[in-house]
Nucleic acid binder design. Structure first.
Lengths: 156, 156
DNA sequence: GGCGTTCCGGTTACCATATAACGCCAGTGG
DNA sequence: CCACTGGCGTTATATGGTAACCGGAACGCC
């Protein structure tokens, strides 16, 4: 069908994700695509069990491992991120560079009022983190950075 | 008894914690002190249920709410922190300033090999986080920063 | 002293998050 | 054909976290 040609941004994102997976020999199966679609549709951090509930509409037999395995795959592929403070998942919105299926440096701004969560990739933050680690003789591999506060819309 | 006078660093820390609570009208009860002692003894991030198991040695009737209420109190008093990535708790080691019972800016360096977790308070990191938030019109209230990698000892 | 209020914590029940372990089946390559 | 692998269904269980209710101790006040 013409899903890609006619699709909105969601279908375009799914097609791009499938292509990105293909270039590195990974397969975005139907299940994984379904879960990714649900995460994209949410637009906000969404819990694994919330995803599971929605997934059950399409797949009656879905169980926790169903969704967690798909989430693990999407995390590995860098298509989604986990928000640790919320035990929730959100689609990666960093389209600036192809992060080759691995975690790229990023930070979250989490609004405590409306729940909106924005992903940023601030070079100064990354540099400061690397410097702080190095000062302790620590070899940093990755960093979880989640800033809580009030978003611009809610502050107004 | 002479616990404070004769005590090692652990008892000294407990006494200091009790004093800090007292100055702001909070009471470090026996239960809270027991939980704090367990967290201090661990020296590493420790899960709530691990604490619960150990707590049961002294308090047969201990249940999840027992330990979570104590942990909530200790968090409010700034005596411990939560490590979000590990769903675990660790004693605050920042003795530089009296953070008046409220959360103070801090970051964690988590060694993936040995599990050692160090607390730092890097001003440059805090400044970079504040600047990044401000650039998005976001009012930052607090930040979770957890750097994973390899500690100096394990790298050697 | 009597009384109300607040804080603390015991107790039960429950919900939420995450993983282990087993096994089937389709696809792939010898 | 056979062996192997990846993907996933299925069941059970581990781990993390709260809600709600209750009783008793401590404190302040008249």
């Amino acid at each position: 069908m013409a899903a890609v040609r006619d699709g909105g941004p969601l279908e375009l994102a799914l097609a791009a994700a499938a292509a990105a997976c293909a270039t590195r020999g990974a397969k975005l199966t139907e299940l994984r695509r379904d879960v990714l679609r649900l995460v994209l549709e949410a637009g906000q951090p969404v819990g694994a069990y919330a995803l599971l509930d929605r997934l059950k509409a399409a797949r009656a037999g879905a169980a926790p491992p169903t969704v967690y395995r798909a989430l693990d795959f999407l995390l590995e592929q860098g298509l989604i991120h986990k928000v640790e403070r919320l035990n929730a998942f959100i689609a990666c919105t960093d389209h600036a560079h192809d992060h080759a299926g691995h975690a790229h440096p990023h930070q979250f701004l989490i609004c405590g009022r409306c729940g909106a969560t924005a992903e940023i990739a601030d070079a100064a933050v990354s540099a400061a983190l690397a410097a702080a680690a190095r000062a302790q003789g620590f070899r940093a591999a990755r960093a979880t950075v989640e800033i809580e506060g009030t978003c611009a819309a809610c502050a107004a």
